[in-house]
């Protein structure tokens, strides 16, 4: 397996023609009850097509991260329905959902969430161990290649505590992409990076869409958002506008 193989078209069951990879209907997430309740997102309808790079923008507290977490399956909606890769994920049990995530989605967090006791390459390997059935040797090889791809070939055996923020973020991206998921959800992956590094990360994710991967990219950086296929603007938990950029569609 080499780097090109890694980025070859997604092997997961392709969504039926014309169907959306992400299909959210009246999606609502509310914390608490009554007066004390906090609205994360409310009544969101959204479709994301396969191979598309969608940027989600909006002011702080508008519900971007909430939406991202729902789509990535690390949170469950209060109401509404959510179909991702042809699977209804809003009603899944905890463990089912975990297994689904392992095979279908890669998540890039703003604050990395690398496992502190594992080295860079081990962190990446972990995603393979949890998300696919690859032999140990192959796994290690694939993880090294994924690190190479994000420019961290020489840092494979460093612990997170020994790396800079940008380096850690790139490990996070390698970890999210190594399983070749159909969908990648990245919540402000460039927030901790300088401009050059931020663009590099964006280009990396954008490159994945060319091989069929779908990317939901949450950001504050309007420059980056401009380069996306579509831009979803959120305000107060609702989708305010969806802006087609035409470039990729």
């Amino acid at each position: 397996m080499n780097a090109t193989a890694l980025l070859s078209p997604v092997p997961v069951a392709p969504p039926t023609a014309g169907a959306s990879l992400v299909e959210a209907r009246d999606l609502t997430r509310i914390w608490g009850k009554g007066d004390a309740s906090q609205i994360g997102v409310s009544g969101v309808d959204l479709d994301v097509r396969p191979g598309e790079l969608v940027a989600v923008i909006g002011p702080s507290g508008s519900g971007k991260s909430t939406l991202g977490a729902l789509i990535a399956g690390i949170d469950r909606p209060t109401s509404g329905s959510l179909v991702v890769s042809g699977t209804r994920i809003d009603r899944m049990k905890t463990d089912q959902l975990a297994a689904w995530r392992g095979g279908n989605v890669g998540i890039v967090f703003q604050d990395f969430h690398l496992l502190p006791t594992l080295t860079a390459v081990e962190n990446v390997e972990l995603a393979l161990e949890l998300g696919s059935r690859v032999g140990r040797r192959q796994r290690h090889q694939a993880a090294l290649e994924a690190l190479e791809l994000v420019g961290l070939g020489g840092h494979a055996h460093k612990l997170p505590a020994q790396m800079s923020g940008g380096e850690q973020q790139r490990v996070g991206i390698a970890r999210a992409t190594v399983t070749r998921p159909a969908l990648i959800v990245a919540d402000e992956p460039t927030g901790a990076l300088d401009q050059a590094n931020g663009h590099a990360v964006f280009d990396l994710l954008a490159g994945l869409t060319r091989t069929g991967t779908t990317v939901v990219f949450i950001t504050h950086d309007l420059n980056l958002a401009d380069a996306a296929d579509r831009v979803v603007s959120m305000i107060d938990g609702r989708v305010a506008s969806v802006d087609e950029r035409g470039a990729g569609s």
Binding site: A99, W100, G103, H113, L114, P116, L130, G131
Partner: peptide
């Protein structure tokens, strides 16, 4: 956080 991150990566509770 470590355990949650593991879960986010697809680890079931059995893991």
């Amino acid at each position: 956080h470590e355990l949650a991150a593991l879960q986010a990566l697809g680890a079931r509770r059995r893991r």
